[in-house]
Design a protein around this nucleic acid. Sequence first.
DNA 1: GCGAAAGATCTATAACAGATATAACAATTG
DNA 2: CAATTGTTATATCTGTTATAGATCTTTCGC
Lengths: 131, 131
Amino acid sequence: MLLYVDLTDGRPVYQQLRDQVVEGIATGAIAEGERLPTIRQLAADLAINFHTVARAYDLLRQEGFVQVGRRNGASICVRGEAASPEWRAALRTTLAHAYAKGMASEEILRICREILATFQKGGTSSETTLA
Amino acid sequence: MLLYVDLTDGRPVYQQLRDQVVEGIATGAIAEGERLPTIRQLAADLAINFHTVARAYDLLRQEGFVQVGRRNGASICVRGEAASPEWRAALRTTLAHAYAKGMASEEILRICREILATFQKGGTSSETTLA
DNA sequence: GCGAAAGATCTATAACAGATATAACAATTG
DNA sequence: CAATTGTTATATCTGTTATAGATCTTTCGC
């Protein structure tokens, strides 16, 4: 799957990579058991330090999205609970943002459905993430 | 409205305060036109530096949630668009997290509805311009 | 109007996080 | 075995977060 780094984005690089992989799993761009590039390879491709990639992979492992082999690169291996308290809190804050701005619940839900439709069941696996 | 600081939370204090105010607007805990504590007062109450509170208020002002008077403290004053590209991206990442963990779209939407149900119903008089 | 209170601004500092750069080690693949 | 890869460790640099104190300006209550 295609991974990239947006230097204009204020968020940390390891967080950007983490989000791209999670969205890649959701859209089906990368499936269970498939491999990500090796740490050193991805670091070379993106022209960043391999520690930064290692940190992203380590975060994905801690969150239960991948397992990191000794020489095989990281492979997708989803495990653990879906709805953690932290996840619910983040979702609540995001929904509150739109609601506080005056958006109706029905409109918010419509956008949620729209986004969910771009995931695995909705579209083909050739979906790409947008900036 | 009651504001607090969680030192065990890894997120920045100014971000915690910002999120609490946004959720407070959504739930109706604080309404349009109502005032937040003054910067110095809130800093004293929470035993934190007033610069940190000032940063939270400034962020809320930039995001279009409050206006900061010269002596009155900050008052709720919502303006601007609800669904920015950044907001949609954050929502997409959060939804992808649950979807990638195997949660069904219907279950995700159910939780969204559950959260939205805890927000303010109907809205105040200045909620919408259309009848 | 006067003075106190509050926001705004500025500088300084300490602690922490993010990212880079090397180096060395362990394990596994071919 | 040898090369590749993940892991670990150290060091450095930068930016962010938070605190601290000082000063200025505005504005509200008296």
